[in-house]
């Protein structure tokens, strides 16, 4: 009996290795994706001044614990995917009523102002970040987006543009839980 099972061993080893390769090479896995450690953590300590000449206030930790679900988006005028996601974020904020806050990452104030004048400004608050706030938030680049619950905890973190696929697949179901 045992001897007969031994003949199955190579086949079992093959199945195990093939399964691993299938998972490793599958299109659903992105090996360059950077994992996030921010989920369920409270919003980090930060306090950013407003971008001059924009007419919207700056952003600090205290603004994110107001008992309301909010979205925080890191963006820059020099960032091409930010331009691509801009209209989807604008539409999201309009349709759901979720306040959208921006963090303007490593940008010149006049460039940011020109960019928002061209594309429209969906942000209720914008903080100017010379670089350190991004590290505090575990951000690796722009654009990155967070959803904060009413208690000021991070519930969603996405690296890359907020395309409709991401909004429909990840954000909307979470929003239904957080804001029934």
């Amino acid at each position: 009996m045992f001897r007969r099972l031994m003949f199955l061993l190579p086949a079992l080893v093959f199945v195990a290795i093939a399964g691993y390769f299938l998972w490793g090479l599958g299109p659903a896995r992105d090996p360059s994706a950077v994992p996030t450690a921010m989920i369920d953590k409270p919003v980090p300590d930060f306090d950013l001044a407003a971008v001059p000449s924009l007419g919207v206030p700056g952003l600090a930790t205290a603004d994110l614990a107001g008992g309301e679900v909010v979205m925080v988006n890191f963006f820059a005028s020099w960032c091409v995917p930010c331009r691509a996601e801009h209209r989807y974020l604008t539409a999201f904020a309009e349709q759901t009523g979720v306040p959208l806050y921006g963090i303007n990452h490593r940008d010149k104030p006049e460039d940011a102002a020109a960019w928002l004048a061209e594309l429209g400004n969906p942000y209720r608050r914008i903080g100017a970040d010379p670089g350190r706030a991004a590290v505090e938030w575990g951000v690796t680049g722009v654009p990155e987006t967070f959803l904060i619950d009413g208690a000021g905890r991070i519930r969603f973190h996405h690296r890359g543009p907020m395309v409709p696929e991401v909004i429909d697949r990840d954000v909307m179901p979470l929003l239904r839980v957080l804001k029934p």
Partner: peptide, 8 residues
């Protein structure tokens, strides 16, 4: 750093 970016 690990608190912000994970073990990665």
């Amino acid at each position: 750093l690990v608190a912000r970016y994970g073990d990665f």
